[in-house]
Computed example of a mutant assay.
Amino acid sequence: MPLLLPLVMLVALLVDRLFGEPPARLHPVVGIGHYLNLFGARLSRLPPGPAFVGGALAWLLGALLCAAIALGLEILLMQGLQPWASWPGLLACALALGLLLKPLLAWALLADEVREVEAALQRSLDEGRARLSRLVSRDTRRLSATEVREAAIETLAENLNDSVVAPLFWFAIAGLPGAALYRFANTADAMWGYRDHREWSGKFAARADDLLSWIPARLTALMMIPLRQLPALAREAPRTPSPNSGWPMAAMALGLGLSLGKPGVYRLNETKGVAPAAAHLAPALALAGRALQGSVALLMLLAWSLRA
């Protein structure tokens, strides 16, 4: 059965390309968001100690539920379709698991949203800022056109890992439960992991996401650049506050010869990069697409080798 998980990855990516996201009422990430909202506001009002403990317990319970549901579905499919018994069983199981894996990753939506930021920016700066605000947590109201493009390209690079490569990495390692656990962790970090009133209640979630994203973020970055740029990547990536997001973002900056950054926080490839312009969007999407292809090929090989 070594071919099952590689086939599932291909099915999930094909469904993503052809059909995009499922309806919100059926989307597991929406369900994860509802779960996190049950606790978020209450925990953030607690003193630091109780907020940290409460946040950790809520995270652990949610992660356990996600992994358990995914494991139960995987076992039911494996027992019912018996993919090891015949080619029809293998293909049917790959299709069913691929449909379940698809909502845990999102490449087509990410690429479309980044394109829409540039399209809105072509109409007006205010429209570009408003469209970008759907993708990033930073305040976009005072960003220049260059800064809007910087943020969009950075988001493309960062979420190439968070929304596609990392879920596939954990799927290759631990099947559907691994992908579900990662998606829960990444969503929890996106909703709780900030240095504001949520700092203590979200600290466990932030650290868990850092841990689970550590290898995939570096894999994503390595797929974007030639080997000769590794020293520059190792120098630039740690400039961001996050231990992981700087790797794919720095790789994107180096791969395209751009200077990318967040005002007052960090600057990547500052001395050799140029400011992003409208013409850089297509090369950024192409570079991300090639990095995705390389990552998927490697992860398919990993999934196959672990089960051969």
Score class of each variant (00 low, 15 high):
residue 254 L to I: 09
residue 46 L to P: 00
residue 26 L to S: 04
residue 61 L to R: 08
residue 82 Q to I: 00
residue 223 M to G: 02
residue 282 A to W: 13
residue 255 G to C: 04
residue 55 G to L: 11
residue 145 A to M: 08
residue 19 F to L: 14
residue 231 P to W: 01
residue 83 P to Y: 01
residue 187 T to D: 07
residue 118 E to W: 13
residue 299 L to Y: 05
residue 293 Q to H: 10
residue 197 H to A: 15
residue 303 A to L: 08
residue 223 M to Y: 02
residue 73 L to S: 00
residue 70 A to C: 06
residue 280 H to G: 07
residue 144 S to C: 06
residue 226 P to L: 08
residue 285 L to H: 11
residue 9 M to T: 02
residue 49 G to Q: 04
residue 226 P to N: 05
residue 96 A to N: 05
residue 191 M to Y: 04
residue 199 E to N: 01
residue 72 G to V: 11
residue 134 R to F: 15
residue 69 I to N: 09
residue 174 A to R: 05
residue 275 A to N: 05
residue 80 G to W: 12
residue 307 R to E: 15
residue 211 L to I: 09
residue 295 S to F: 01
residue 122 Q to M: 13
residue 252 M to A: 09
residue 87 W to D: 00
residue 304 W to L: 14
residue 276 P to I: 01
residue 297 A to W: 10
residue 185 A to N: 05
residue 224 M to A: 11
residue 255 G to A: 07
residue 110 L to T: 07
residue 135 L to P: 13
residue 185 A to Y: 13
residue 32 I to A: 14
residue 140 T to W: 12
residue 72 G to E: 07
residue 109 L to W: 11
residue 154 E to V: 08
residue 244 N to E: 14
residue 84 W to C: 00
residue 194 Y to D: 10
residue 276 P to G: 08
residue 69 I to G: 07
residue 34 H to Q: 13
residue 184 F to W: 14
residue 303 A to N: 12
residue 45 R to C: 03
residue 94 A to S: 04
residue 42 R to Q: 03
residue 251 A to F: 03
residue 68 A to N: 11
residue 249 M to L: 02
residue 136 V to Q: 09
residue 170 W to P: 07
residue 37 N to G: 05
residue 178 G to Q: 10
residue 225 I to W: 01
residue 104 L to K: 00
residue 272 K to Q: 15
residue 70 A to N: 09
residue 36 L to F: 12
residue 103 P to S: 06
residue 220 T to K: 01
residue 206 A to S: 12
residue 156 L to F: 09
residue 16 D to A: 06
residue 18 L to Y: 04
residue 142 R to Q: 15
residue 243 P to E: 13
residue 258 L to C: 13
residue 299 L to V: 00
residue 58 A to K: 11
residue 292 L to Y: 06
residue 127 E to F: 09
residue 231 P to A: 13
residue 44 S to K: 08
residue 204 F to N: 10
residue 167 P to F: 09
residue 222 L to G: 05
residue 118 E to M: 10
residue 109 L to N: 08
residue 97 L to R: 04
residue 169 F to H: 01
residue 101 L to I: 01
residue 294 G to E: 10
residue 295 S to P: 06
residue 270 E to C: 02
residue 230 L to E: 04
residue 145 A to S: 15
residue 297 A to L: 15
residue 242 S to C: 09
residue 39 F to C: 11
residue 271 T to V: 08
residue 16 D to S: 01
residue 257 G to C: 10
residue 114 V to D: 12
residue 234 A to Q: 12
residue 50 P to F: 01
residue 170 W to E: 13
residue 77 L to P: 10
residue 102 K to T: 04
residue 91 L to Y: 10
residue 292 L to G: 11
residue 225 I to C: 06
residue 134 R to I: 03
residue 172 A to T: 02
residue 264 G to E: 07
residue 66 C to V: 15
residue 269 N to I: 03
residue 50 P to V: 01
residue 249 M to V: 00
residue 153 I to Y: 15
residue 141 R to D: 13
residue 65 L to M: 14
residue 247 W to F: 14
residue 279 A to I: 02
residue 212 L to M: 00
residue 80 G to E: 09
residue 160 L to P: 03
residue 48 P to N: 10
